[in-house]
């Protein structure tokens, strides 16, 4: 089963995304900030897609993407930023850090699943 790594500092968001993705046939790993995401990647988890928020404590989304791109297992993994930020500057920063795509909150479940399925169809 393909694995999606979800990073968001909001417990309700993490639970909501996990619920939607599991219902669509994905394995879900979660973290509450970028640091936890890096720890998961270093522990050997190889996600097929990573969904990350931008504004998180300890290590934010941009910092996470930069560090994740240095880890062999996540060098080419699609990373989708899911955030309340819609500003062009932040988007450019995320792209420069290595983000593959961008979804602005509020996003609908169908919108989210369409993007994830395109990158990695569930088995």
């Amino acid at each position: 089963m393909p694995t999606i790594l979800v990073l968001d500092d909001s417990a309700t968001m993490v639970m909501s995304l996990a619920h939607i993705l599991k219902g669509a046939g994905y394995e879900v790993e979660t973290g509450m900030n970028g640091r936890e995401g890096i720890d998961k990647l270093n522990s050997g988890i190889k996600p097929n897609v990573i969904l990350t928020d931008l504004n998180m404590p300890e290590l934010d989304g941009i910092g996470f993407i930069k560090e994740a791109r240095k880890i062999a297992a996540a060098k080419f993994t699609p990373i989708i930023v899911l955030t309340t930020e819609s500003g062009g500057r932040k988007r450019d920063e995320a792209r420069a850090a290595g983000a593959s795509g961008w979804l602005t909150k509020p996003a609908e479940p169908n919108q989210l699943l369409a993007v994830v399925k395109q990158l990695c169809p569930p088995r």
Partner: peptide
């Protein structure tokens, strides 16, 4: 589908107001 949609949208609003 409707329940999931309400849930996800409210989770996002909840997160936004907390921020």
């Amino acid at each position: 589908h409707d329940v999931d949609q309400i849930c996800m949208l409210h989770a996002q609003r909840h997160d936004y107001f907390l921020q």
